[in-house]
Design a protein around this nucleic acid. Structure first.
Length: 349
DNA sequence: AAAGGGCGCAACCGCCCGTGG
DNA sequence: GCCACGGGCGGTTGCGCCCTT
């Protein structure tokens, strides 16, 4: 594209793609794959640069793209992930099958930002606007840039928590998983408690547990504190999406788990368990119970609510209507051992 | 009906990173 | 170590549509 060597070798077309160009690109990639993008336009008979072709394919022509408006669950997930990952759209997109980073970025900038502000939430920091001293422009600066984030900081993480050994070991450990031994696999550890960690850090209270003491999981310390962007969540294979917010994950150990990346993970092997906020398995669930939990989107949707959406953390925010509707369900779930979505270790988030 | 503003979206821009020579 | 290049990403721009005045 502009400025790129491939672009000024010859006069290349810019701007909107015609249906004829789309057809050429689609036919070529369908038949031969894209291979080296810089060679695609020539081979496909297009007067475009390779980057333009790549973008067109990824954002528009790819057959697995999901069309249409974002669902409420997708929106909630985007907000949740943005609070964890910041403006790392490609990583957020990785959690929404069929959605592109460009699409999510546009949706965020045009729609979600506005909604959050209307609810009294600063979209940049995910904190109440009343807590954000300066105007919006200033608060935007609080987000790490992508390059900063790629160097190991995570949104909301304080530097003091960065471990000395934060390194590639995190990458290495992510692909495994120790579920067979009865301990949480690393990818579950990784999914677990980000929200709690962020809130604990933000609110200046103790973290739920010391990662140094997590048995058999020294790597998870590095993982939690310097989470390499490319491995959040860990590179477990996303087999399919149970619903837009809950991934069915499989790792090398054969463990299958469900995770909503909100601090609640469920693992189903021969001994299904509920991993509670005490970081231990204290509740045995039958497969039927687990599947029931996962498949009941209404229940999950409650657990996916950001605390501020339920009005518990940010009094100025409007209470979530769905939350009040489903309150009896929550109480029922609590009797099963599920923590309240807006509490943690007795702390109201 | 025309002008203007808001909005959503597609595409470009500029930068960074990884790789290979 | 340096450079060229390809690929990828987030930020930004510009166009077209729609609604309001």
């Amino acid at each position: 594209m502009g400025g790129h060597p491939c672009c000024y070798k010859q006069k290349l077309k810019k701007g909107l793609w015609s249906s004829e160009e789309d057809g050429k690109l689609l036919n070529y990639i369908t038949q031969y794959g894209h291979g080296c993008w810089s060679s695609v336009p020539k081979l496909a008979g297009l007067q475009r640069c390779g980057k333009s072709c790549r973008l067109r394919w990824i954002n528009y022509l790819r057959p697995d793209l999901k069309r249409g408006a974002f669902s409420q669950q997708e929106e909630n997930l985007i907000i949740e992930l943005h609070s964890l990952l910041g403006n790392r759209w490609s990583h957020i997109a990785g959690h929404l099958p069929g959605r592109t980073d460009n699409e999510i970025k546009n949706f965020w900038n045009s729609c979600i930002k506005k909604k959050l502000r209307q609810r009294g939430i600063d979209p940049a920091t995910h904190k109440p606007l009343s807590e954000v001293k300066d105007d919006g422009n200033e608060s935007e600066k609080k987000l790490p840039t992508s390059s900063q984030a790629n160097k190991g900081n995570i949104v909301g993480m304080k530097k003091s928590f960065l471990p000395p050994q934060a390194s590639s070991t995190a990458h290495e450990s992510c692909s495994g998983g120790s579920g067979l031994s009865g301990k949480p696999s690393d990818h579950l550890l990784q999914c677990y408690s980000f929200r709690q960690i962020n809130y604990a850090d933000d609110m200046g209270v103790d973290r739920p547990f010391d990662y140094n003491t997590v048995p058999g999981s020294p790597s998870s310390l590095a993982m939690h504190n310097s989470i390499p962007v490319s491995t959040f969540p860990a590179p477990a294979i996303v087999a399919h999406q149970v619903n837009p917010s809950i991934s069915l994950l499989s790792d090398n150990s054969g463990i299958t788990s469900y995770s909503n990346c909100s601090g609640f993970s469920y693992c189903t092997d021969s001994t299904p368990f509920l991993w509670n906020c005490e970081n231990k398995f204290d509740k045995q669930l039958s497969s039927t119970q687990v599947h029931s939990m996962v498949e009941d989107e209404d229940k999950w949707s409650v657990y996916l609510q950001m605390p501020y959406l339920s009005g518990s953390s940010y009094p100025d925010a409007e209470p979530c209507q769905a939350y009040s509707n489903i309150k009896p369900e929550i109480e029922g779930l609590q009797t099963l051992g599920f923590p309240h979505p807006a509490t943690y270790n007795g702390l109201t988030l």
